[in-house]
């Protein structure tokens, strides 16, 4: 176990060394990491609770005030602090995005691996399901699904509905990507060798297929996260978010509903928009770089290292 740990630490430090060289990846990582940290430490970073009404020295509520000493990003129409909403909104946006992204990734990987590995009828069935989901326009379908699920009185929170709907609709591209990769891997000879040593399907998928597509899955997850966050913002902007737990999309929805634009209250609608760009851009940059890096075949060569490690067997004496 100890050996594994040191090996893991070594791999991690090597990973970091090559990651550090990539400026775009670093930028992406920085963007994502700051957003996550801000969400995690939200209470520490905010002067008010998002529901507090900000008042001036005379106790008057401040509505639509530009950035001032009372709040770094001003206040909205009801006198709530925009900065506090933005910081707490990060929690909602990231949580919905991450959870939906992971559901999509899981379903997509499962469908992709099953379809690619088993082929034949299973492949046909799973891929036709994927095709159907691909050709239905996403946005109307999601609107209908979210609206109906809300009506059905299922006793689940509005945010969970969003998570499930996004997660169960955005796995199609992942499934296709992974299926095509599995198709090429399963024809490789080491899979035939695994069968020859007496391995069953479960073993082959776990030990030989999964490690090969893991880089793809990791990189794709990060990319799917950005999509999920964007989609969540879109749905929330259209009023399908949870008004009691506002995400960045919900903030934009409020801003437009309450005529922040006509009032010139740019501090109300610009920050959430920029925050969305911040996180999605970070995910895309990070995802692209991870995809390049997590490929062990590009890292080392057999002539590297200790030359004396090659031993030539002495020919047998005749």
């Amino acid at each position: 176990m100890n050996g594994n740990w040191t090996l893991f630490k070594r791999n991690l430090s090597e990973f970091w060394k090559s990651f550090r060289r990539n400026k775009l990846g670093l930028l992406g990582g920085f963007l994502v990491l700051t957003a996550v940290l801000v969400a995690a430490f939200a209470p520490v970073l905010t002067p008010y609770s998002p529901k507090d009404i900000v008042r001036d020295e005379n106790g008057r509520g401040l509505t639509f005030t530009p950035p001032s000493i009372h709040g770094p990003l001003g206040t909205d129409d009801a006198g709530h602090d925009v900065w506090s909403q933005l910081v707490f909104g990060a929690r909602i946006s990231l949580m919905v995005g991450f959870m939906a992204g992971f559901i999509a990734m899981f379903v997509g990987s499962l469908f992709g691996i099953m379809a690619g590995y088993f082929g034949g009828g299973i492949d046909n069935l799973l891929m036709r399901i994927t095709d159907i989901l691909l050709v239905i326009p996403d946005l109307p379908l999601m609107l209908i699904l979210v609206a109906t699920l809300r009506q059905m009185d299922l006793n689940i929170s509005p945010l969970s509905v969003l998570i499930v709907v996004i997660g169960l609709l955005y796995w199609t591209s992942t499934a296709r990507l992974i299926r095509s990769q599995v198709l090429t891997i399963k024809e490789r000879q080491f899979v035939a060798r695994a069968r020859a040593i007496g391995a069953g399907h479960g073993h082959i998928i776990r030990k030989h297929i999964l490690p090969q597509i893991m880089p793809l899955i990791v990189a794709n997850t990060v990319l799917i996260l950005s999509t999920a966050i964007l989609v969540e913002s879109g749905l929330a902007f259209l009023g399908l978010g949870d008004p009691t737990q506002p995400s960045w999309g919900t903030m934009l929805n409020f801003a437009f509903d309450r005529s922040a634009v006509t009032n010139g209250a740019w501090w109300f609608f610009l920050p959430p928009g920029l925050a969305i760009v911040w996180v999605t851009l970070g995910c895309v940059l990070l995802g692209n770089v991870l995809e390049e890096m997590l490929n062990p075949r590009l890292t080392a060569h057999h002539l590297e290292g200790d030359q004396n490690m090659v031993m030539i067997p002495a020919p047998e004496a005749k």
């Binding site: 000879q189 695994a194 020859a196 040593i197 030989h208 090969q212 062990p296």
Partner: peptide
């Protein structure tokens, strides 16, 4: 059959470069 493969008969494949898993 799975129990017999490798235990009683093993195979060296054509072209060892492809028969080894590159990430293991």
């Amino acid at each position: 059959m799975r129990a017999i493969r490798w235990r009683d008969m093993a195979i060296i494949f054509q072209g060892a470069m492809n028969a080894l898993n590159p990430v293991m």
